[in-house]
Design a protein around this nucleic acid. Structure first.
Lengths: 197, 197
DNA sequence: GCTTTGATATGACCAACATCATACTATGAA
DNA sequence: TTCATAGTATGATGTTGGTCATATCAAAGC
């Protein structure tokens, strides 16, 4: 090892960070290898020392996004009351801040429509991420004594993702806010989290 | 008029049909002007006699998708009981057939993530389409005496779109089916359509 | 300080694609 | 039958972007 042991690893991580943001913001087809590398402070040539192809970068970046999101979620939930955790997550997910920060927000809402078009590897990694989120929510619901936890968790994730996606499309700001509010309200009722908000 | 009066109009319609399917199947970035024209039985050169640009084609194709979907929906609902209409729509929307027919299905689920990246014109047309669907569902709910019709309609559309999107991503077929089933069940309960299925 | 080797840069290649100028063709009118 | 023109085809252009061969650079060991 001539270079610092962690040098390449760090660079790779930096590229993945940049790619994860760019992909969520612009979509997998609108980002370029050169652009991502430039934003990471490198030139495009070195790219293939880190990734086998653009598709491989996308797949790895997807994994990276979910890892980050999951870490954040698990950490913020540590030792807290399940009802409070769920209420906070719904409030965050359907917030205007999340709507307006596509590039750092939930990968599912940012990339839902792109996934069916991507290669199997990326899809598998994405699926796994979706599964983890659903499981996390199901675990909270189970802790609250809901017997239908797995199904309710799936339904919850669906409404969260759908509401955020549509809110991001809407050109009229008032309409967009109303969509977020409607689903926030519906979910708080369905999940029986009324005491919190 | 040297040609049949409706000749160009018909060609344009054909191109829009092809484009509407291709865009939903492959996404706005993965389709090419040449490919769409070829599938419509033409060559790429004539394209600019019909559309000002690729962006214009996409915007018009989006309008076209929503028009088609709306016509189908309104016709299939004509003179029917609102509860039956809603139950049938939910069942169709969350069916495996709809999941597996991206290219002819609901534009919202097929393109949700792409829209925020498209030009204003396409976004406006898309927004209008989403609004019409929400209004249609709200009208059925109002006919059923639900006082919270607009908000419930928004929440319903969100869950429909989210569930279908996620079901399409899922690589595991059983998981995918479970997602559809969970939201179908949840919606039938929330909309109080239990008598129908 | 020199060498070795891993990490990154330069530059080129090829394919895909949007766009457009120009040429051709089919059709209805004269 | 011939002509004018709307509609479509051919072919070219410029650009962008993924990929790769090769060159350069940085750092650790002798």
């Amino acid at each position: 090892m001539r270079y610092d042991k962690a040098h390449k690893q760090k660079t790779r991580e930096r590229v993945l960070d940049v790619a994860a943001r760019a992909i969520r913001a612009a979509g997998p087809d609108r980002i370029g290898v050169a652009g991502v590398m430039a934003e990471a402070g490198l030139t495009h040539g070195g790219f293939y020392a880190h990734f086998a192809s653009k598709d491989a970068l996308i797949a790895d970046a997807i994994e990276h996004m979910f890892d980050q999101a999951r870490t954040r979620l698990v950490e913020s939930a540590a030792g807290k009351d399940p009802a409070r955790v769920l209420a906070a997550y719904v409030a965050f997910y359907l917030s205007k801040a999340h709507r307006d920060a596509c590039e750092s927000g939930c990968p599912i809402a940012a990339l839902a429509a792109d996934l069916p078009r991507l290669p199997a590897d990326a899809r598998r990694k994405f699926s796994r991420g979706v599964g983890h989120l659903t499981d996390f929510i199901a675990a909270q619901l189970r802790a609250l004594g809901r017997s239908d936890a797995p199904a309710l968790a799936r339904s919850t994730v669906a409404e969260l993702v759908g509401a955020l996606s549509i809110a991001r499309i809407e050109t009229d700001n008032e309409q967009s806010d109303a969509i977020l509010a409607a689903s926030k309200h519906a979910l708080i009722r369905r999940l029986e989290l009324e005491t919190e908000t």
